[in-house]
């Protein structure tokens, strides 16, 4: 039983670290700021969730799970807002490579109005 739990925790921890690593790799490899945002802001949230899950699996006291939930909720509510703010600023300041977009309906609508 405890061996199975340990294996589960190990797998979850490795997954969390792997997602964090892809965030770093994507951050370095993707060509424009908007694309970087996708790997920069999201897989790390999954990585953090996985790590929190591992802590939850190993923790003993029941109310410690409360603060894990609090951290997870806080991260889930703030990460998309931060990503949107940075993405909006990036788009507005032209940090997007138009040759990598196959369609851009926002600049079309912006130029119409």
């Amino acid at each position: 039983m405890s061996v199975a739990l340990d294996v589960l925790v190990a797998v979850v921890l490795l997954l969390g670290a792997l997602f964090s690593l892809t965030a770093g790799v994507g951050l370095l490899r993707f060509p424009d700021t908007l694309a970087r945002l996708h790997t920069g802001a999201k897989p790390q949230v999954i990585g953090l969730m996985a790590t929190l899950l591992a802590i939850g699996l190993r923790a003993e006291a029941p109310l410690n799970i409360g603060i894990l939930l609090l951290v997870a909720t806080c991260q889930l509510m703030t990460a998309p807002v931060a990503a949107h703010m940075v993405g909006r600023a990036a788009y507005r300041s032209g940090r997007v490579r138009a040759d990598l977009l196959i369609i851009d309906e926002l600049s079309r609508d912006l130029s119409e109005s």
Partner: peptide, 21 residues
């Protein structure tokens, strides 16, 4: 998440993107 992770790790050119309304 898995798909984006793969897009970041796989060799080759970067993915093609779009802005849709």
């Amino acid at each position: 998440g898995t798909r984006v992770a793969w897009q970041a790790l796989r060799p080759g050119p970067p993915p093609v993107n779009a802005v849709i309304a």
